[in-house]
Write a protein that binds this DNA or RNA. Structure first.
Lengths: 111, 111
DNA sequence: CTCGTAGTACGGCAGCTGTCAAACTACGAT
DNA sequence: ATCGTAGTTTGACAGCTGCCGTACTACGAG
């Protein structure tokens, strides 16, 4: 299966802006999405997150994360699979994503 | 001189929220303020930044940084001195501020 | 006391943000 | 072909954001 064919548009590594990444992660819902992607398997369908918002709002948040360069998305059947661009981001901004996710884990202890 | 007497209201360490910090630093002007505070002497007057905005907008940005817990401000004569709450933030979210500022330095190379 | 400097407060404004509902598309299963 | 599931699109709306100008306050210097 060629994943690149169904991959949604995303910024190249050189186009990723720090302020866009910070803005994308400065929202509770989006931060939670990133955290769940980091903790769980490396890719998840949108519906697997059980977010406290409607489907359309969910679509919006995933798009913000994708256009900021935080996640990558591609189709698989009727689902939209998402995964963190962790390695790429770490190459561009070393330690950034790691420390943000660690901070989130500290602040919001697992229930 | 007792600095605490003239200190402007700020959140206690336990009241600082990660999303508020990220949001505060997700703006180019405010990120630049934080970066200059980190690079230069540990406290600076607002006017020393030569920001590309008017005084009132400048006041607004400093207030966002302060209420998010990123900086501390107190009066000194006719100036308002600002300094990063770097140690406190690092205690709360280890490595976070460091990696954000390092990312900013990488992205925006010194002219 | 008067004046200049540093910053705040207020009001306004265009634009963005997060949210929703409703209608739609895409795909798999039966 | 029909139906259900997963997600998108559009339009709407309240609220926030960044920005400005003007008027104001606080303080030091003369």
């Amino acid at each position: 299966m060629d994943v690149t064919e169904t991959r949604l548009p995303e910024p190249a590594l050189t186009e990723i802006r720090l302020t866009a990444v910070l803005h994308a992660l400065a929202d509770p819902v989006r931060l939670r999405i990133a955290a769940e992607l980091a903790d769980g398997t490396h890719e998840m369908a949108c519906q697997a997150f059980a977010l406290p918002v409607t489907k359309s709002t969910s679509t919006h948040h995933f798009k913000v994360l994708r256009t900021a360069g935080v996640i990558r998305q591609h189709r698989r059947g009727t689902s939209r699979m998402s995964c963190l661009r962790a390695e790429e981001l770490d190459q561009l901004f070393p330690g950034l994503l790691t420390s943000i996710l660690r901070a989130h884990r500290t602040e919001q202890p697992v229930s």
